[in-house]
Amino acid sequence: MAFAREALRNIFKKPVTEKYPFERREPAEGFRGRPVWDMKKCIGCGTCVRVCPVKAVEMIGRGREATIKHHLERCIYCGQCAESCPVKAITMTPEYELSDTDKSKMLHVYERK
């Protein structure tokens, strides 16, 4: 009966469960969500393609004209690309609701204007 008091106390407490789809939790500072490429800064060096452990980043072309394709379904959000980028063109956003049933929506293409 060692838990009798603890159990009684909890009856009158609010449940700790977060009502997820209705109330969204703010991710902590520095959370690694969806990476986003800033194509104004990008120099097309291909470092992100090389370091990515899951080959989620694809680069078409080379140098300043290159287009970046990011496959979200492969991404493991490790943030190595953002860390290795020599010009800090990649940022990890706090977006976390990224799943989808449509695979075509998982491909993000970053083109030069």
Binding site: V16, E29, F31, R32, Y77, G79, Q80, M92
Partner: peptide, 29 residues
């Protein structure tokens, strides 16, 4: 199961701390 629920409820504290420190709850990297 009651103890199970209580312990896992309090485990959330340390998970949140890990998120603060590393930016993620499971794979801290």
């Amino acid at each position: 199961d009651t103890l199970f629920m209580y312990v896992w409820r309090d485990r959330e504290i340390v998970m949140d701390l890990l998120e603060i420190v590393s930016g993620n709850r499971v794979h801290y990297a």
